[in-house]
Nucleic acid binder design. Structure first.
Length: 527
RNA sequence: GGGCCGCUAGCUCAGUAGGUAGAGCAACGCCCUUUUAAGGCGUGGGUCAUUGGUUCGAAUCCAAUGCGGCUCACCA
């Protein structure tokens, strides 16, 4: 790995330096991220995770000891049933309960929240991200935050004053900085009515109209509301860095109030940075809970290899919005990545400043930061891989075998790309990208001169294909057309119809060569 | 109403620790007699939204303005 101590070309490095500058030299730096797993954790949520991962890497490369915590805010309340969930009526009966008490109607995990968590925890190692997970429901229920809750109650007036700075409707005199899940119903439709100055609070269940006094240590149904919970945890964990979406990082947003509230808990606010949303392009109408398109990391990893997924985030400033494309842009993204790789390995000469930047992007894009590749990948254009895959009748292994000049070090990466090409073709590619060899279909109807032209072509394939390059062989394609009085354009169309039952196809000479003599002749011999 | 982001070539954007404006595509020209989102070589094209300020020097920093967008003032 190169020495990045002074490399400031990338935003993650700049952020790492800022954290060290603002927080001072510390034996341990804590970087945090987190979300409420109340639905699919989508690719926009992933942006926060990888943003932290990149800063963590930059800090570690500076020799720092870093803890990366990811908070599952699964003691939050189940507020609405996402549209695409199984058994919505059953789920609806659990509204207002904590999401860990909601059943998982998909049947994969012990509860609703856990199902969403597991999905993320299983996939993050694929892109080289290994946070330490913290489960808030378990912590709250174990009384882990009892002192924090007590502290919040003690500082009730100060907290109220801070929150009221931005509220249109000030919090009333009867407000307490805690919310309670009822012991009777598990729901949060409750109102706290009294606090004894120590650990006991009294609340009323508004559904059942029953009251009860509980000890927050032994009956931990109590949780802090978000704007108090967040700063309490900053203080508890000593968080030095945590990014946020633009909803949090706006004036009067939760970061603003939390950085004041955290002081009441004896802590200081972490360094933060704002990330923007991710748009999707070309997915073709996958419906999310909110009615728009949604994709999660699994969807993206189907068509982009892990390093390219990282590359898209690494190469974009977090505070600008960008789109992840599932359409033809995929080809360009692969090309861009290959360009970056060529620059890294010195195969493409660019200005020094750009070179430094691209090299850093390449490093941070790699899944394993300790093992940056020592040779570039096999840089076949994505489109070519699509064609190889189709030539070999949708068999990835055969397609891989057909490429002879691949080194051992390139093989795994190339296979991963072929699988992505396969997935892209099957799910997102436009029709003109898809075809199959007409080896088993009946011959098309042709006129006599067309038949003769195809016979000529077969003969040229038989005699010359193996020993010629694309360009040399292409002259025989034109010869076959010209000798039989067919316009070039018409002959190309004819040949595509004969070979792949379509009007157009991949560049013909190269295509014939890639398919190989045997299969081409198998088809052309029908004429 | 507050805050934030964007405004750079026809299009999509890069360039923001200040130092002579970039890429890809499109366009135009030439070439490979020759299908495709072809290939090669070359050319043109921008008062960096506007105005002012700081500076020897501003796309870059500051202040206003305009247009577009997001977000907070519920909950999390």
């Amino acid at each position: 790995m190169s020495d990045n101590k002074n490399n400031m070309s990338h935003w993650a490095d700049q952020m790492a330096e800022r954290i060290i500058r603002e927080k001072g030299e510390k034996p341990l730096y804590t970087c945090a991220s987190g979300i409420t797993p109340s639905g699919t954790v989508h690719i926009g949520n992933f942006r926060e995770i990888i943003t932290v991962d990149l800063v963590v890497r930059a800090l570690r490369e500076r020799g720092k000891n870093v803890r990366f915590i990811y908070s599952w805010d699964d003691y939050d309340v189940f507020r609405k049933v996402p549209k695409n969930m199984k058994d919505p009526e059953l789920l609806a009966s659990y509204l207002r309960k904590p999401i860990t008490l909601v059943p998982d109607t998909s049947g994969v995990a012990e509860n609703y929240a856990r199902a969403n968590e597991v999905r993320v925890e299983n996939i993050l190692p694929t892109v080289g991200i290994y946070p330490e997970y913290i489960y808030q429901a378990a912590r709250y229920r174990a009384g882990y935050y009892a002192e924090g809750i007590k502290r919040a109650l003690e500082k009730k007036e100060e907290i109220k004053a801070i929150l009221n700075e931005w509220r249109t409707e000030p919090l009333g005199d009867d407000w307490f900085p805690v919310s309670v899940f009822s012991s009777f119903t598990d729901k949060d439709n409750t109102k706290v009515t009294d606090w004894d100055g120590e650990y006991k609070i009294t609340y009323t269940d508004l559904d059942e109209n029953k009251s009860e006094t509980i000890d927050i240590r032994s009956t931990p149904n109590t949780k802090l509301p978000w704007r108090v919970d967040w700063p309490m945890r900053w203080a508890k964990e000593g968080v030095d860095f945590e990014p946020g979406g633009k909803d949090h990082l706006t004036e009067g947003g939760s970061y603003d109030t939390s950085k004041k509230v955290v002081e009441l808990f004896g802590g200081t606010a972490p360094v933060s940075m704002r990330y923007d949303f991710i748009k999707l392009k070309g997915m073709g109408g996958k419906i999310s809970s909110s009615g728009g398109e949604v994709a999660d990391l699994y969807d993206v990893l189907e068509i982009y290899t892990p390093e390219i997924v990282r590359y898209m985030f690494v190469g974009t400033r977090p505070n600008s919005e960008f789109a992840i494309s599932f359409d033809l842009d995929v080809l360009k993204i692969y090309e861009d990545y290959d360009n970056c790789e060529r620059i890294y390995f010195g195969l493409l000469d660019v200005k020094e400043q750009r070179k430094e930047k691209e090299k850093r992007i390449y490093e941070l894009s790699q899944v394993d930061s300790d093992h940056i590749p020592t040779e570039p990948g096999y840089q076949a254009p994505f489109r070519h891989l699509c064609n190889l895959f189709l030539i070999h009748e949708s068999n990835v292994d055969e397609a891989l075998e057909s490429i002879s000049d691949v080194t051992e070090g390139q093989k795994d990466r190339l296979r991963a790309r072929l699988v992505c090409a396969k997935n892209w073709l099957e799910k997102y590619a436009p029709e003109e990208f898809k075809w199959s060899l007409a080896t088993t279909t009946d011959p098309i109807d042709v006129k006599d001169n067309e038949r003769q032209a195809l016979k000529d072509l077969a003969s040229y394939v038989n005699s010359y294909l193996d020993e010629m390059n694309e360009k040399e062989f292409s002259t025989y394609i034109y010869k076959a057309a010209a000798d039989n009085g067919i316009e070039n354009a018409d002959f190309f169309t004819l040949t595509y119809r004969a070979l792949i039952s379509k009007e157009k196809g991949p560049k013909l000479a190269g295509f014939i060569k890639t398919v190989g003599k045997e299969k081409i002749l198998q088809i052309l011999s029908k004429y």
